[in-house]
Amino acid sequence: MLIIGELINTSRKVVKPAVEQRDAVFIQELAKKQVESGAHYVDVNCGTMVHDEVETMEWLVRTIQEAVSAPLCIDTPRTEAMEAGLAAVKNGQPMVNSITAEKERYVAVLPLVLKYKAKVIALCMDDTGVPTSAEQRITIVKKLVGDLTAAGVPEDDIYLDPLVTPISTGDNCGNDVLDTVRFIRKEFPLVHAACGLSNVSYGLPNRKILNQAFMIQTMDAGMDAYILDPLDKAMMGFVYASQALLGQDSFCVQYLTAHRKGLYD
């Protein structure tokens, strides 16, 4: 299971001013807390810094790497900022968030994935827009895996994101994701499946409960990577418990370690 810590994002009210003021201590502490809480990757997103995203991305990557040895996930729609972040990475294998099957995006991002030998999150979206069924997602999955592997990206470096959409907008939104993940796990066993969870509950009350339940369902279907808040003790508790119950935690070592650290107090 791969956990990508989502908290260093300038769209968050507490993060943007810290980045604007180049508060390295704040950013480094946030990175440390995420890694200490179980994040394997730290996501770096400064997309709201419209006028100086490239410089900000470089600063963030350098600053975070001074504090943690965990690898980074470079998260931006701008290829200039993506390359700046990737070029500054020193720790481990970076991850790119994200590529899609949209022609313009694919052509722009693929060379960076190959140049920096990065893992890549591949969104199940093409030039027709966001898919509205499992069948459409599966068609895009086949294309992405075929194109990426033909270009030289190892299957183990591909993380397919089936695009979680709010269940408040359609009764099958949750099932479409689950069916897509099951297809990925069956047809491409070496390829990974990744997602953020919060969209599933958009517009509904008790969002954390829905997110937690959906995490358990998607993990059972074969999801093996999540972009989430690792400081959310309840969510991380369900991650470790689910892994143990699904036989993904040999002799329940991770679950017992989490228990001894007080995660379930």
Rank of each mutant, 00 (worst) to 15 (best):
L160D: 09
S11T: 15
K32D: 09
D147Y: 05
F188T: 01
C124I: 05
S69W: 10
E29P: 06
E80H: 00
P189H: 03
P162T: 06
E155M: 10
Q34Y: 05
L114I: 14
A87R: 07
I74D: 00
L197Y: 03
D147G: 04
M236Y: 07
L256R: 06
D126N: 12
K103H: 10
A88P: 01
I99E: 00
P94L: 08
A234L: 15
C124D: 04
T257W: 12
N97C: 02
V15H: 04
T48W: 01
T100A: 06
V19Y: 01
Y41P: 02
I216H: 11
L86Q: 02
C173A: 14
E20P: 11
T149C: 10
V44W: 00
V107T: 15
R12E: 12
V113G: 00
T132S: 15
V141C: 09
R185C: 10
D147T: 01
V141R: 04
G85C: 01
I227C: 11
F183G: 07
A87H: 00
A18E: 13
W59P: 10
V109G: 02
V25K: 13
Y41N: 06
G85I: 02
L72F: 02
G38N: 01
A122V: 03
E135I: 12
M236S: 09
G85R: 00
K16T: 11
E187H: 13
Q28C: 03
P71F: 09
R137W: 05
M235H: 08
V44M: 07
P205W: 02
L263H: 08
L112C: 02
L30Q: 11
A87V: 06
L30P: 03
N9F: 03
G222H: 06
Y116M: 01
Y202P: 09
I138L: 05
A225M: 09
V68D: 10
G237M: 02
I184N: 03
P77S: 09
V141I: 12
V61F: 01
E55H: 05
V68Q: 10
L148H: 06
Y159A: 04
L110G: 04
P77A: 08
V19K: 09
T149I: 07
F183W: 10
T165G: 11
K33E: 14
T76Q: 03
M223E: 13
L60D: 00
I8E: 02
I209F: 14
N199M: 04
L263G: 08
D127P: 04
N175M: 15
Q65S: 09
E66D: 15
L228I: 13
D147Q: 10
M95C: 06
Q254E: 15
A225N: 07
N9P: 07
K90I: 11
L160Q: 07
R12H: 13
R260E: 15
C46F: 01
G85L: 00
G47R: 01
P230R: 07
A118T: 01
K143R: 15
V96N: 01
N9E: 05
